[in-house]
Simulated assay, not measured.
Amino acid sequence: MITPQELVACIEKLTSLPAVYHRIRALLDDPDSSVHDLAEAVSSDPAITARVLRVVNSVLFGFPGRIETVGRAVNLLGMQQVHDLVLGTAIVGAFNGIRPARMHMSRFWKDSVYRGLAARAAAHRLGLGDPERMFVEGLLADIGHLVMFQAAPDMADAALERAHRHHIPIHEAEQSVVGCHYAEVGAALASAWHLPAGFSAAIGAQLMPLLAGPHTQEAAILHLANDLLASDADEVDEDAVLATMSPSIVTILQADASMLGAVRARVRDELSAVIALFFPDQS
Rank of each mutant, 00 (worst) to 15 (best):
N96Y: 12
E161W: 05
F149S: 02
P169F: 12
T15P: 00
L222G: 01
I252M: 14
S231Q: 12
A265D: 15
T216W: 01
H22A: 08
I91S: 00
G88T: 00
L17C: 09
R268K: 13
A94M: 09
S176F: 06
R72A: 14
V136G: 00
R99N: 13
S58R: 05
F149W: 10
S191Y: 02
V147Q: 03
V55I: 14
D37G: 08
A156E: 04
A94I: 02
L195N: 04
Q150N: 04
S283A: 15
V274G: 03
S283C: 13
A202N: 08
G97R: 11
F278G: 00
R99A: 14
Q282R: 13
S106T: 14
P169D: 12
A159T: 07
V35W: 05
S258V: 12
V274A: 02
G204P: 12
L85K: 01
V86W: 00
D37M: 04
R72H: 15
E68R: 15
T251V: 06
K13I: 08
V52D: 05
H181L: 00
P46F: 10
V113W: 04
T89E: 09
E6V: 08
Q80R: 09
R66H: 15
L117Y: 03
L117H: 04
D234W: 06
V236M: 15
G88V: 00
D30A: 09
D32F: 11
A201D: 14
D29H: 10
A163K: 01
D281H: 14
A118W: 04
S246N: 07
A233N: 07
H223Q: 12
E161M: 09
P209D: 02
A188S: 14
R99H: 14
F149Y: 13
V267N: 12
A158T: 11
I221N: 09
L271C: 11
Y21P: 01
V274D: 02
F278E: 04
A233Q: 13
G204Q: 07
C180K: 04
A257D: 11
A156R: 03
V35F: 09
N96M: 10
G213F: 06
I143F: 02
P214R: 11
R162Y: 04
G138Y: 05
R125S: 15
D30G: 06
H167M: 09
A94P: 01
D154E: 10
T244I: 08
N57M: 09
L7K: 07
A90S: 15
L228M: 12
S200W: 00
P100G: 09
M148H: 01
A151R: 01
T89Y: 02
T251Q: 15
A233M: 11
H181R: 01
S272K: 14
